[in-house]
Design a protein around this nucleic acid. Structure first.
Lengths: 363, 363
DNA sequence: TTGAAAGCGCTAACAT
DNA sequence: ATGTTAGCGCTTTCAA
């Protein structure tokens, strides 16, 4: 009857039921049987607990059991659907093992990330799933070494020992470049994201290698951009199109990059896909209303998150270090309108493609 | 030097420094001065703490201080940019008062929401910011009554006592309908979201009232839809366009609704905006790459979140119940391409508008 | 200026 | 089948 009162303690319940605290604890612990508490007593305790609105204090339980039941998740920007989706899947996974998630937003700042990791450690999270911001992993390695298992997602680190879950940047970039090459493109401009980060550099390397295989020397590949943002996409594409009017296609490293590049292309009087082909690496999860008709290598964000959750779960359950250091999630190549048809002179005459309208939903 | 070891306790530091735990506690508490600890001792303790990599156990501190430093946030879907943005702002706000956020995803399920709220209470969150799923607020009222302040965001409840932060649904709907009416539209179909929820019903009421003022009887207003999803938007718009071929404009209650409606319109052979005008209530935060050229009443999601954080902060700081029960955040009307020009016969001849392409970024 | 001791709410040996 | 006791790691009286 009475509303659950947070100040009701196990002691209160025990007193009301006329038993000791330990008996009450055992009666409510789920395995009353195993603790050889008589059914009568157990029922009585449970009734009083319900009546008084008793809610076990998880803080106390955590302190005593040395298990907080908390997982720390750190992302550069929760409001970014990409990271939000990862957070969601990790949260779901955590819940399956009876844990809750402490979510922290580093705001793309390394310093904040370091602080947040410390804070989460102080709160005794049992594990940390981090989408790191920077190029430095000391704080994460330290946490990991100090006994808080760390799983890294998306942006990883070259060296180090942390299990890392990423998309197949290499495969995706290869596929996109091959697609363009197949359409006859050779002068392909690269609108990159943040240099120095693993996703960026992996994609860049793969793109260059693929182009080289098609006979385009690495020196001839124009590259610009300094972040995975719309702004960087716009500015770098604008510069790139001005410097290299001969480019027939752009490869943007993220959806925001692509949108920026689209804008720059429009301002440069190049219409996509007719006067300029475009493909991009897709950072955005599959949400219907985000869809735009861009040929892309789509990341499986949910699987990224789920994999991280699984790696963490196994780590926590077995206590053993993870089997592998790299977990690579495949990307899905989707040809849409923005890459256009074969380049004139490279094959069949291209047809005027449809405009870039929001694509239809999946079904 | 040595990595922070989570098993180092205050006792260890005290022992190393040759003082008692209480002295160590005071020395590290920040207000060593106030506790009249000698500078020498304080320094010594601090040095040892640093050397040993001591990290206070926040669980223990919370238990003792009866302040968890945690804020619970419950949203229907973190992966939805709208809720993600709210979560982000609340997180930021929480941090400003030295608290962390426990994030929970109810997955649009009332039952889960109830469970999650209970769990968060058990973890002794100091407050709850909830974007509720359902029409029932008992669990929230109970939590609030039991001493865990609750602030409701977005979807609210008619009665009850919980402070609620919402967009100006009424004003936004009025503005959109007035816009359409001003262009000469009278037969306006409403592609609604989830009936029974406050945002939906407020918008619907306002739309009807505004139409009535323009001489359109409530009975003549076609309404369809059962959720804020793309699917509902598609199905209801399709039905609506079939039943009422005379409608010249659609008012979608969310961005996904609008996208569904756009798809339905295309399939029905109605091109937007030329053969059908469209406006929508915008659920999506201002993210460049989400932009599409839809005339909309844009919600200020960040302000929604910030307001919630502020209301909660004040509540926690002063301990007093909030000043008001409703906090209404203005929406921003943005006319774009999708609503087209004046209807033929209602004014100037409409011009063929541009296609629905991703709009340029803000600057 | 510092220490000893009590206790936050819970669990888990170790007794009976 | 249940009670007693001893902590988990910290803060905070109350003494000295």
């Amino acid at each position: 009857m009475s509303a659950s009162n947070l100040t009701v303690t196990l002691g209160d319940v025990a007193a009301a039921a006329g038993v000791s605290v330990s008996t009450a604890s055992r009666a409510l612990s789920g395995n009353a049987k195993a603790c050889r508490i008589s059914d009568a007593t157990a029922d009585r305790v449970r009734n009083h607990a319900r009546r008084l609105g008793f809610r076990p204090n998880l803080l106390a339980r955590s302190l005593q059991s040395r298990r907080s039941g908390l997982l720390g998740v750190v992302v550069p920007d929760v409001a970014n659907p990409f990271f939000a989706a990862i957070a969601k899947e990790v949260t779901r996974g955590a819940e399956e093992t009876g844990r809750s998630v402490l979510l922290a937003d580093s705001g793309e700042s390394s310093d904040r990330e370091v602080k947040l990791v410390a804070e989460l450690q102080a709160r005794r999270v049992e594990g940390l799933v981090v989408c790191p911001v920077g190029v430095d992993s000391d704080h994460l390695e330290a946490a990991n070494a100090a006994g808080t298992p760390v799983v890294v997602v998306d942006r990883g680190f070259r060296g180090g020992s942390l299990p890392t879950v990423t998309s197949d940047h290499r495969g995706g970039a290869e596929r996109l470049v091959e697609h363009l090459v197949g359409l006859g493109h050779r002068a392909i401009g690269i609108v990159q994201g943040r240099p120095g980060t693993l996703p960026n550099d992996d994609r860049l390397r793969a793109a260059r290698r693929t182009l080289a295989a098609a006979g385009v020397p690495a020196d001839d590949v124009p590259v610009a951009g300094d972040g995975f943002t719309e702004r960087s996409g716009y500015e770098s594409a604008a510069r790139l199109l001005a410097d290299r009017p001969d480019v027939t296609a752009l490869f943007a490293f993220s959806t925001p990059n692509a949108f920026g590049a689209l804008r720059a292309a429009a301002e440069a009087g190049r219409s996509v896909p007719d006067d300029l082909a475009m493909v991009c690496f897709d950072e955005v999860p599959h949400v219907e209303f985000l869809r735009v008709s861009l040929t892309a290598a789509a990341q499986d964000v949910r699987r990224l998150g789920r994999t991280a959750a699984e790696v963490m779960a196994e780590r926590l359950e077995t206590g053993r270090p993870p089997r592998r250091r790299r977990y690579t999630v495949p990307v899905k190549f989707v040809a849409r309108a923005s890459s256009g048809g074969p380049l004139p002179g490279a094959g069949a005459r291209r047809t005027r493609s449809r405009e870039l309208v929001p694509a239809g939903a999946p079904r």
